[in-house]
Amino acid sequence: MNPSLASALAVFLGGMMLAASVVVLFVRDLLSAIIITGMISLSASVLFLLMDATDVAITEASIGAVLATLIFLWGKGKMGGRE
């Protein structure tokens, strides 16, 4: 891949991930925090692919998109209104 294109994409994705990670700590609604954490995992998967780690990209996509999100959603559903 073209090095300058990869660099631009990495700057874009990295900035998005850092901004999102700060927002996770401060957003009021816990559901939104869980959704934004899922977005961080999926962006990390694209970064893994750009770093030529194909197997890691597949694993991170399947884990971050479904399993981790669902586990935290389940925990939030079980806790109910106790914020």
């Binding site: 770093m51 780690a53 890691v56 971050g64 939030k76």
Partner: peptide, 25 residues
């Protein structure tokens, strides 16, 4: 909030994994 601590832990986990893969890039 204890669940938000878990989310922050997951974020740190993602960062560590990125750094490890980066060390082999």
């Amino acid at each position: 909030n204890i669940l938000r601590i878990g989310l922050a832990f997951t974020i740190a986990d993602t960062g560590v994994n990125l750094l490890l893969v980066w060390s082999g890039y």
